[in-house]
Design a protein around this nucleic acid. Structure first.
Length: 277
DNA sequence: AGCAACGCCTGATAGC
DNA sequence: TGCTATCAGGCGTTGC
């Protein structure tokens, strides 16, 4: 599932390829993936636009177009945004294809959870979730002190807090489990109960894990591919996610799988104690 | 405030 | 080329 490092990798890969390209034709093959505006308006408004810069906000991909329009895309679970030099055959589950003056950009999504929005700069409120996003965890504004502030008074589980896009934008199930393991914190600990030392360790772990994820081109567990359709490499570096029963890289004891925050959750019961004392 | 359940989806997998 | 139930999860919504 694409999280911040995967989306960042896609944006970095697509940016140089798409910059300056014109959109010649728009194919909407599955209308319900277009969340805004109507599929007809989407098609009409997109046709003839030129692509400027690309950016990322949380897990959203933003294509800035001529005339001040922004094509916003969320890949959710299984979405892919891939540039094809040859505008020939489209893979199964391709729902939107943009024919460019050279090649084609396609949105492919097996489970159809992903969505596209075409908005003006004043319409960010049309994109569900976008205007309510929390801090970018790799930006300067996300400091150890601001993280401490986020935790203050929150009795909920630390994993739930890390996954809450309204607080921190971009963490998903994989990087959350990895960050908690690196910091040695049990996913079900109450956020407000973390010590100063634990808070610092978790803050650093989040920044490190995301940075390393980007450096390795993201994590490909099942569906994720980059702008060119290539898999990432961070799955080789995972220490807990998807490793139930396998030995912990730090202590050698088996990784446990539970459900926390409604998600499959992997952790080491020895290195990540529910009640550290 | 916090959390669980649900809906949206299809492919992989387990059980029979 | 077996059939069917279950599971995976981002995220908005609903209800406790």
């Amino acid at each position: 599932m694409p999280e911040l490092p995967e989306v960042e990798t896609i944006v970095r890969g697509l940016g140089p390829i798409l910059k300056g390209r014109a959109i010649r034709r728009v194919h909407v093959l599955q209308e319900n993936v277009v969340a805004y505006p109507s599929p007809e308006d989407f098609r009409r408004e997109l046709t003839g636009r030129r692509i400027g810069r690309l950016s990322r906000r949380g897990k959203y991909i933003l294509l800035h177009l001529s005339g001040g329009l922004i094509l916003t895309i969320h890949l959710r679970m299984t979405g892919q945004l891939v540039y094809q030099p040859e505008a020939g055959s489209l893979p199964k589950h391709t729902h939107v294809a943009l024919e460019l003056d050279s090649g084609l950009l396609r949105f492919t999504d097996t489970r159809r959870f992903g969505r596209l929005w075409l908005i003006s700069e004043a319409e960010t409120d049309k994109v569900s979730g976008l205007s309510a996003l929390g801090v970018e965890p790799l930006n300067k504004e996300f400091t150890e002190d601001s993280f401490k502030e986020l935790l203050r008074g929150r009795r909920g589980r630390i994993k739930s807090l890390l996954l809450d896009q309204h607080l921190i934008a971009g963490l998903g199930n994989i990087y959350t489990d990895e960050a908690l393991h690196r910091a040695g914190i049990h996913p079900a600990r109450s956020a407000a109960d973390l010590s100063a030392r634990e808070t610092r360790a978790l803050y650093q772990a989040v920044r490190e894990i995301l940075t390393e994820g980007i450096a390795h081109g993201g994590t490909s567990i099942r569906d994720y591919v980059d702008a060119a359709g290539e898999e990432g490499h961070f799955q080789k570096k995972l220490r807990v996610y998807g490793r139930g029963g396998k030995p912990c890289a730090r202590c050698g004891r088996p990784i446990t799988r539970t459900v926390c925050a409604g998600r499959g959750t992997y952790y080491c019961p020895h290195c990540q104690k529910q009640d550290p004392s």
